[in-house]
């Protein structure tokens, strides 16, 4: 079966930020996968590297067998909530409609059908009554639901979500999980960065455990063991850290040439 997401020897290097080092991964479609690791392990960076938002220093990424650029319409993205300015003058509906932009040509207006899809997605996360609110007037959980609705509106096959459960209330967390499970039933693939080990086990079919390098990847029941967790959370490897820092300096120079 074709992999939804395939990473080969992926190395990511920021100027002074955590890096990822030689990640090999092949995620089959139809799975709900959690990405777990300590702070600064590069969980978000992994997602950003797939999306081309982080500088890839080596290796490659394939989405459904093609490069990300070619297949970007099949990928939906939920960024971290803090990554945007919530004072921005847009309404909830405007934000969800942005999910349709990938399917529209440059300078093309969203059609009535796009609006209808956006409404349905809002309804799915129970936010339809607030469609005309400015996004800053929402609670944290509601803001996260808006981002989820936007990703739904993308109608993708692979969803990448960056910490969707941070700072949301219990009701929202349950609602989001219900939507994610429904997506999985439809055969979509989900990669979710998650920070809470307590419920990682019950939420996900598979887990990716990373701490700058891939520690383990597999079915949750197999990899969620004390040994693997110890290997993931038991401190960074000093030598790897040093070498990775040195690597980080080199690509920064290479990027000048580009």
């Amino acid at each position: 079966m074709e992999s939804a997401l395939e990473l080969h020897d992926l190395t990511v290097a920021y100027h002074k930020k955590p890096v990822l080092y030689g990640i090999d991964l092949a995620v089959p479609s139809g799975k709900m996968v959690g990405i777990v690791g300590p702070n600064g392990a590069g969980k978000s960076t992994l997602i950003k590297a797939v999306l081309g938002l982080a500088p890839v220093a080596g290796g490659w990424v394939k989405v459904f067998g093609k490069s990300y650029r070619e297949n970007c319409k099949r990928v939906g993205y939920v960024p971290q909530r803090e990554s945007v300015d919530w004072d921005f003058p847009v309404s909830v509906m405007d934000v969800v409609l942005m999910g349709r932009y990938g399917h529209l040509r440059l300078a093309q207006r969203p059609t009535a059908r796009d609006r209808e899809i956006a409404m349905q997605c809002l309804d799915k996360v129970q936010m339809l009554p607030l469609a005309n609110r400015q996004i800053g007037n929402l609670s944290g959980g509601q803001q996260q639901r808006v981002f989820l609705a936007r990703a739904l509106a993308q109608e993708s096959d692979l969803y990448l979500m960056d910490e969707p459960f941070v700072g949301v209330d219990a009701a929202t967390e349950a609602a989001i999980i219900a939507v994610l499970q429904e997506l999985r039933e439809q055969g979509k693939t989900l990669l979710v960065v998650h920070h809470d080990l307590a419920n990682a086990r019950s939420y996900f079919d598979q887990l990716i455990l990373i701490n700058m390098r891939l520690v383990a990847y597999g079915d949750t029941v197999e990899v969620f063991t004390p040994e693997v967790l110890q290997a993931t959370y038991g401190g960074r490897l000093t030598l790897l850290d040093d070498v990775a820092q040195a690597m980080a300096r080199r690509p920064a120079l290479d990027s000048d040439r580009r």
Binding site: G52, L53, Y101
Partner: peptide
């Protein structure tokens, strides 16, 4: 509003 998202949709 969200440059990262904009890049991700191509």
């Amino acid at each position: 509003f969200d440059p990262g998202f904009a890049r991700s949709i191509g």
